[in-house]
């Protein structure tokens, strides 16, 4: 095989598009022929640089976000999606719970009562286990006020943080 026959095989060498015979022909030819060896190196480098060009591609998620924004798909269904989307629903629930906690008058006195009332609701059949747990906390918190204040503030802060974090993430995206 002469050089031009070999040259014609070289572009496919690095794509694994050559059968075993052709591959062997190329191998034995380039062992002796400097020109074709350099040619083969050229196609190897070309393969690499062509593959590297995929970095020029913009992120598909960004394209999708822009297109959906331009089409106004997001804005139109935002309220519905907030309500029927799990993270939306969860964040709304968290904020309602947070506000509920805030609104309890004089929480450090009232909380044991509220907890035990909540325990009563749950004991109506929703979750007996949760009910007994709540009642237990109500009992304990009647005595240890400071522990209760800490617990209350901690829970409140955690809930508000989570709620607002989720809303922010949800709206921004």
């Amino acid at each position: 095989m002469n050089c031009s026959d070999i040259e014609n095989l070289l572009p496919r060498y690095h794509e694994d598009e050559l059968d075993a015979d052709d591959r062997r022909r190329v191998d034995s030819h380039v062992a002796d022929c400097v020109n074709c060896r350099e040619s083969l190196a050229f196609f190897a480098a070309l393969e690499t640089s062509l593959s590297e060009r995929r970095a020029l591609r913009p992120a598909a998620t960004r394209t999708a976000a822009r297109v959906i924004g331009r089409l106004g798909l997001r804005q139109r269904s935002f309220v519905l999606r907030s309500l029927f989307n799990a993270p939306g629903l969860a964040s709304v629930t968290l904020i309602v719970v947070g506000v509920f906690l805030l609104l309890i008058k004089n929480p450090f006195v009232e909380l044991p009562a509220v907890l035990s009332r909540m325990g009563d609701w749950f004991s109506l059949g929703l979750s007996p286990k949760l009910a007994s747990w709540l009642n237990e906390i109500a009992q304990v918190s009647g005595d240890g006020e400071w522990m209760l204040i800490g617990l209350y503030l901690g829970v409140f802060a955690l809930i508000m943080l989570m709620g607002s974090w989720m809303v922010l993430r949800f709206v921004r995206d």
């Binding site: 995929r54 020029l56 591609r57 913009p58 598909a60 998620t61 394209t63 999708a64 297109v67 959906i68 798909l73 997001r74 269904s77 999606r81």
Partner: peptide, 23 residues
């Protein structure tokens, strides 16, 4: 049917092809 998530998925699937054609 207006499912934004589905269309998003379609875009993400075919974006590399479309961009390659444009390039």
């Amino acid at each position: 049917r207006g499912n934004e998530k589905a269309f998003r998925e379609l875009i993400e699937r075919y974006q590399p092809m479309a961009f390659s054609v444009i390039r």
